[in-house]
């Protein structure tokens, strides 16, 4: 989605078309390939990792394990980095991770106001809305308003804790297990955990939806 609906560039700023950007990137890539600084296979490899292997399904799996295994949950909340390694998850842009637990009285929400820091090993690459100005501006000041735009209405009686990822620690949220899931397997539970619930702007799905 483009930002043009919200922001009118000042005179002189001409938005580039997708074709113009593609041409510039091809030019950069050609130079890097000719100089031996990038491999075409490296581009295929890295993009494929984040398209097919590393994404929110990994965070969902870990959340589901925490819902079913209280000892694992304890380890996850005390030292998320090590607990994720147990599940074979970790690495770039999540070298050190911390998991925040939602409860009946506390909701957590993650943002990076200065750029786009995001826990890649558990969530993959961030969605555009996470990187674009509106979320970065408002999450720290109007979190209830932002959550409402995601369909989540949080009363003043619940404390909202925002985590602005300004260093190399990466934060993500352990949402509350939805009701009506007694007897669900880890796999069934993981299917209810959405990316947005791990960022903290939404609840997991329920068995009904």
């Amino acid at each position: 989605m483009s930002l043009e609906h919200d922001i009118h560039p000042s005179p002189g700023i001409v938005p580039r078309s997708d074709e113009e950007i593609a041409a510039r990137v091809k030019a950069m890539e050609a130079i890097l390939v000719e100089k031996g600084l990038i491999g075409s296979d490296a581009i295929d490899y890295m993009s494929s990792v984040y398209e097919h292997e590393v994404g929110p399904q990994l965070g969902a799996k870990i959340a589901a394990r925490a819902w079913t295994d209280p000892e694992f949950k304890q380890r996850l909340l005390v030292d998320a980095t090590s607990a994720c390694v147990e599940m074979g998850v970790g690495g770039m842009q999540g070298e050190e991770m911390r998991v925040l637990e939602n409860t009946d009285s506390v909701r957590n929400m993650v943002v990076c106001t200065l750029c786009s820091c995001y826990p890649w090993p558990v969530l993959g690459l961030p969605p555009n809305w996470y990187k674009y100005p509106a979320y970065r501006a408002r999450a720290v000041r109007d979190p209830r308003g932002v959550m409402a735009e995601f369909g989540l209405h949080v009363g003043d009686d619940i404390e909202i804790r925002i985590w602005d990822s300004s260093a190399e620690l990466r934060y993500w949220v352990l949402p509350q297990r939805p009701g009506g899931t007694d007897g669900f397997t880890e796999e069934q539970l993981a299917a209810l955990v959405t990316r947005d619930s791990l960022i903290g702007v939404a609840d997991p799905l329920t068995p009904e939806n």
């Binding site: 609906h5 509106a134 501006a137």
Partner: peptide, 9 residues
Amino acid sequence: QGIGAVRPE
């Protein structure tokens, strides 16, 4: 302020 709504895709 004044940046508008969050627009998830």
